[in-house]
Amino acid sequence: MRLVIFILKRALHSIFVLLGLSVVIFAISRVLPGDPARMAVGARAPQWVVDNLRAQMHLDEPLYVQYGYWLIDALQGKFGISLVTRREVAEDIKEFFPATFELALFAGILMGGLGILLGTISARHKDKWIDNVVRVLSYLGVVTPAFVFAIIFMLVFGYWLKWLPTIGRLSEGLTRPPVITGLMTIDALLAGDLVVFWDALKHIVLPAIALAMGGLAQEARITRATMSDNLTKDYIAAERALGIPERVIMGKYLLKPSLIPTISILGLDFAGTLSSAFLVELIFNWPGISRYGINAMLRKDLNAIAAVILVLGVVFIVVNIIVDIVVAYLDPRIRLSAERSE
């Protein structure tokens, strides 16, 4: 019950943040020098067409009224026509978003799984050579931008070793499975087409790892730090004294409390992949929402820019709420302090 109140409060706050974000996005799309109506119809259209469109787009009215109209449309998913694809922006988003989501999902799994594993190994063998190797690698992982990893992986595993494909989601000649979830690998599995599944999986590995590296390194560092900190706690000594097997101590009593900071950061990093995806998708020619967004930005396609940022903002905020809930569930102290502050 109290957890429900905690979640509601959190959600209410997020709605406020989203409204604020929509103001910022609206402001950005109106900062552009030039007339959106003129930009939409092109330089050669006669003036009366532009004037008609201006009235239709409510551009003659005060800014706050314009914002009202824009917000109402946006809430209904109407972002207007994209100047680049000449289609409804909402359609484009529906088409491109799943590809990015699939990529981020794989990256998230890699970050969490490998990050925690490496961190645990590192903490278990603290100050041994393996710990030092993991620490140096994770430091390099944190400071190297995702697009540098993308280029290096592409070069080494794609071109030199030729292990993995480097472009797109699927090889030429393969038909994509019927769209159910929009996630290529899952759709292929649902269609029972293992050849396509395997091919899609091979395509996603390089971009997903490039995206995951930064977060993976971060997770490893944090897991190592919390674990080696918790290892010195009295309760661990007590469990050892009681003769509980080391494996059980490590896997059960030490891991759970040590994962709390990791999970908070993992959420942030997962959402952060949506932003690094902007460059990684460009490099791997991955047909996702970020590549779409970049093309929109380079062509000043305002409707599409606004929609992309808003969608990513919503995802970011939802992920953060989920992380807060998971952490509150894992950590009784946070749950209790939320209750006490009621």
Binding site: L21, V24, V31, M297
Partner: peptide
């Protein structure tokens, strides 16, 4: 107000602003 700006990864909004 700071919450609003922290709600989205800085690169995304910076890209959007730089693009206009």
């Amino acid at each position: 107000i700071t919450d609003i700006f922290l709600a989205v990864p800085p690169l995304i909004l910076a890209l959007a602003i730089a693009s206009v």
